[in-house]
Amino acid sequence: MDIAVQKAADRLLDAYRTAEPIDPLTPEYPDASLEVAYRIQQAQVEQWTSAGDVVKGHKVGLASRAIQRQMGVDQPDFGHLTQSMFHLEHHPIASGTFLQPRIEPEIAFVLGRPLVGPGVTAAEAARAVDFVLPALEIVDSRIKDWKIGIFDTIADNASSGGVILGSCPVSLDQLDLRLAGCNLHINGELVATGAGGAVLGSPLSALVWLANTVGPLGVTLEPGHVVLPGSMTGAYPVAPGDSIVATISGLGTVTAVLGGKDEQ
């Protein structure tokens, strides 16, 4: 199975390099467990870090019912966020960075204390949060036409692509995460509304789930790391030249700008 894991990881890494998505992995690994999918993900992370990239946090994917229905899955997953995935808001992001991008608005946690599961409670998770920020996640898939199952998206680093953080930190005790409303605009057009409660009942629940899921794998959520708990709306396709703004009550706005086709 180690050979099969590396083969799948290499195919996904090639998709990054060639900008050509690959066929779904699930038909080739019909009986493989999700643990194998996470090993494929980890093999890619190890390749990135050995090349000089740095893990700067994690994301929880498939956390809302809207996203689960859209992707045809029934449970959350997690992926790694590396330094190269973070982009400044308002600064054009090179169009060649992504294959088939979609956008999601989220409430990002920035940790001030380590979180080590299992056994982490909501109270401990809240105490570990230094502040929150409005965020946009660019999700992307190295699988053709987004024809993914849960095995595919886990292996593909939870369909991670890019992260844009807002610039005004807010203390967790200054807002109710469940009731925080969100408007998502693409090129000035309102495309979706949502609320924090769409994310496992509360984004904080996603943070708890993450800590308790990665803890048995020997992973600690570190101070300074960013955790994206999941989208407050569905995921919407975006293209070169698009401008995306998420407005989250109590947090303000965050803006992502995708560079034009001539910007690489």
Rank of each mutant, 00 (worst) to 15 (best):
Gly119Ala: 06
Leu111Ala: 09
Arg113Asp: 11
Trp146Thr: 01
Lys144Ser: 11
Gly119Arg: 05
Ile150Lys: 14
Leu111Arg: 06
Ala108Phe: 09
Glu137Asp: 02
Arg142Met: 03
Trp146Ser: 05
Ala128Leu: 02
Val116Asn: 15
Asp140Val: 09
Asp130Trp: 04
Ile148Gln: 10
Glu137Tyr: 12
Asp130Ile: 09
Ala128Cys: 03
Leu133Asp: 01
Arg127Leu: 14
Ala122Trp: 10
Pro134Thr: 01
Thr153Phe: 08
Val139Lys: 02
Pro114Ser: 05
Gly112Ser: 01
Ala125Asp: 05
Arg127Cys: 11
Phe109Lys: 12
Ile154Phe: 06
Asp140Cys: 04
Ile138Gly: 06
Glu137Phe: 09
Ala126Trp: 03
Leu136Asp: 13
Arg127Asn: 15
Lys144Met: 00
Leu111Lys: 03
Leu115Ala: 04
Gly112Glu: 03
Ala123Pro: 13
Ile148Glu: 04
Val120Glu: 00
Ile143Pro: 07
Ala108Val: 13
Lys147Arg: 15
Ile150Gln: 12
Leu136Phe: 08
Asp152Met: 00
Pro134Met: 05
Asp140Leu: 05
Thr121Asp: 08
Ile138Asn: 06
Pro118Leu: 11
Lys144Gln: 03
Ala135Met: 08
Val132Tyr: 09
Asp152Leu: 07
Ala126Asn: 02
Val120Tyr: 10
Lys144Ile: 08
Ala123Asp: 12
Ser141Thr: 12
Gly149Gln: 13
Asp145Val: 11
Val116Lys: 15
Ile154His: 09
Ile143Val: 10
Asp140Glu: 01
Gly112Lys: 14
Ala155Pro: 03
Glu124Ser: 13
Ala128Ser: 07
Trp146Glu: 08
Val129Asp: 11
Gly149Ala: 08
Val129Thr: 05
Ala123Ser: 14
Val116Glu: 14
Ile138Cys: 00
Val110Gly: 04
Arg142Thr: 02
Ala108Gln: 06
Gly149Met: 04
Gly149Arg: 15
Glu137Arg: 12
Ile138His: 03
Ile154Leu: 10
Val116Met: 08
Gly119His: 05
Glu137Thr: 08
Gly119Tyr: 07
Pro118Asp: 00
Val132Ser: 12
Ile154Ala: 14
Ile148Ala: 01
Leu115Cys: 13
Leu111Asn: 09
Val132Ala: 06
Val139Phe: 04
Asp156Val: 15
Val120Met: 03
